[in-house]
Amino acid sequence: MAHREIYEHFHPDEKPFVDRAWEWVERAAERHETKRTDFLDPRQAYILFSLANRHPDAQVRLDGGSADAERQRAIIAPDYRNIEVEDMGIAVLDISSDDRRISELDHGDYLGALLGLGIKRDKIGDLHVREDGCHALIAEEIGDFLIGHMKQAHRVDVMVSMLPLSALQEVKIKLDEQMFSVASLRLDGVASDVFRLSRTKIMAPIRAGRCRVNWKSEEDPSTLLKAGDVVSMKGFGRFKVLDVEGVSKSGRIRVRIGKFV
């Protein structure tokens, strides 16, 4: 397949990943190689699946360690191989502490502690944060390093150990639901209401490439959102459009938003 035909479906910023993913698919189909990736975000997983579906001799399996995992590892293999039995290489890193302040730590504190050790983001899957600690899904190959080096999370002394996937204590994502009345479903309009910023101030990060809609870079403030869309704004947080509930008599649109807590 011509590269131009591949790229026309994706954002220019995604070209490096598209190149890598297409190489994985070609190697599986034409050289009979099997590849296990690091953790992919949902947009990367979509791209990989899209490319694999264009090649009849390749197949893909995704697994993030839990049924509702957002970040997942992939196996890309020739179509004749039984990939359901392939080891996905995912383990649970149990992070705990005797310090009561651990109950104050959040997702960002744990992720920051892991990245602060020099771990790449794509070696870490979903984080399940509880009041008494955290279960982090990780690539099993970094487990020994983390056991030897992770001693703190946001100035709280912690203990870490490796657990099998069967021991995962899954925590469902919490959304703070809010109702807004907006003039339109434009990205800048909805985001300015959710993050309580003026339309002018929300434009800058969007045009600077700091916004993603469904994990895809979006630089057009006029992009129209729809139910199910997930919007993330670097430095501000992220939200999901849960429902568009109709138009009021004054012509404004009622939209239900869930902010990720």
Rank of each mutant, 00 (worst) to 15 (best):
E23F: 07
Q169G: 06
F39L: 05
V182P: 01
K216A: 15
A45D: 06
D157L: 10
N82L: 10
D13R: 06
H11C: 03
V160I: 03
W24L: 15
D19L: 12
F239N: 14
R186I: 00
K174N: 08
I138H: 09
I95E: 12
K120F: 03
D99N: 15
S198L: 00
L48C: 05
D188M: 01
Q178N: 11
S166I: 04
A58R: 04
M150Q: 12
H55L: 12
R71Y: 10
R207D: 05
P221K: 06
R101F: 13
I147C: 14
G118I: 12
S222D: 14
S217N: 02
E26G: 14
D193W: 12
I76N: 01
S248N: 12
E219S: 15
L51G: 00
A52N: 06
V194E: 08
A28C: 05
H55K: 11
V171N: 13
I257T: 02
G209F: 07
R199E: 08
N53M: 13
K174I: 12
E218H: 10
D157V: 15
G258E: 04
I147G: 06
Y46N: 10
E177P: 05
E141I: 00
D157S: 13
E5T: 13
K151P: 03
S161M: 11
E219K: 13
S232I: 02
E84M: 08
S250Y: 00
A153G: 11
A208C: 06
L197P: 03
K123A: 09
C134H: 03
E131K: 15
P12R: 14
R81W: 11
T200G: 00
Q169R: 15
D176L: 15
H135A: 04
R121P: 11
M88V: 00
I202V: 13
L163T: 01
T223C: 08
H149N: 15
D176E: 14
S96G: 12
K240M: 09
L163V: 05
V230H: 09
T200V: 05
